[in-house]
Amino acid sequence: MESLVSTEWLEGELGAPDLRVIDASFFLSAEGRDARAEYEAGHIPGAVFMDIDEIADPSNPAPHMFRPEHKFASRMQSLGLGDGNRFVVYDNSPLHSAARGWFMLKSFGAHFVAILDGGLEKWKAEGRPLETGKPQVRHAHFTAALDDTVIADKAYVSGIVHSDGHEIVDARSAARFTGEEAEPRPGLEAGHIPGSKNLPQGKLFNPDNSWKQGDTLRRAFEEAGVDLSKPLVTTCGSGITACVLLFGAHLLGKEDMKLYDGSWSEWGADPATPKAVGPA
């Protein structure tokens, strides 16, 4: 299965016994939208709802941090997601949060994980089928084995600030990156990690919400000043949209990359970390 699948392909595969479809929509509280309620009002047939807030580690003060392996496995099992399944993740969010679902599943050892190109927006625009409510799911067995080499912590990022050998790329909006716009979460300084580049995640998509690909996608990274020949660390507000950049780089064949899971929610809250404001 390819990492990016079309709406046509997915409709043709619905009902396959090994296929599991996942709605990973997520919204910031300021948007005033309820992802679970929207899922229950209309989703791709058979899809289950992955609550990104619920899957996060509640013991960590930073939001959306990875849970321990056994707890992640338990959440997946309760959704009927098991070993040997093919997973297709989609969203209906301007944050393109399906990429977070993709990254978590891959990081914990799932082999066959794809994102639906264009998400629910494209699916609905094409008049494809929807269902409402919550599907009945059968408990599955999910073996979680976290590849911690794809996760960067604050100490790691602190060690590569201004390093010529790495690229740190921030998926937040330009106004949040430069510090012109206040952070939506209280207690955070404005600005960005010194030496980082800014590539707002929305720049990786076409007007119909499909992913840019090939040279068009590569150009988005180049225009942000990102050298994809260097090891890549992505960051954002809380580790959600940073995964969009990881998936975009993955589509270009890149493998040496990490997510700074704490992102600005951790970095911006720590008075000891260096901060920069203004353009990169």
Results as ranks from 00 to 15, higher is better:
A140R: 12
H250Y: 11
N60W: 05
W267I: 13
A190L: 03
P231H: 04
V233C: 08
V89R: 07
P17R: 04
A272S: 15
K124C: 11
H64Y: 13
G12Y: 10
R176I: 00
W211M: 15
H139R: 11
Q201C: 14
G80Y: 03
V137S: 04
P58H: 01
C236W: 00
L199G: 01
K134E: 07
R75S: 03
H141N: 07
E183F: 01
G187E: 11
S78R: 15
P186D: 12
L10T: 11
D57F: 04
R218N: 10
E255S: 15
R86S: 08
D91G: 12
A190G: 02
P61V: 03
I193G: 06
D215M: 09
A47L: 08
E189I: 13
F87L: 07
A30C: 08
A249T: 07
E31P: 02
A224I: 05
S6N: 02
G202S: 07
P184E: 09
S74W: 08
G187A: 07
G82M: 10
N198I: 05
A171N: 02
E222G: 01
V157E: 03
L130P: 01
H70N: 15
E69S: 11
A37S: 14
A73Q: 03
V150H: 06
S229M: 10
D256E: 15
V169W: 00
A249D: 05
F27A: 01
P186Y: 02
L251G: 11
F72M: 04
M1T: 08
S196T: 15
W267Y: 09
D215T: 15
S6G: 01
H162D: 14
G101Q: 13
K230T: 07
E40I: 14
A73L: 04
H162K: 14
V21N: 12
L95R: 08
Q136H: 10
S59W: 09
E181Y: 01
K134N: 08
R86D: 08
D147E: 13
N198L: 02
P17I: 12
L81W: 10
L228S: 01
F72L: 02
L19D: 03
L10F: 08
G84Q: 08
P271S: 15
Y156Q: 14
I22Y: 06
P231V: 12
F49I: 13
I168W: 04
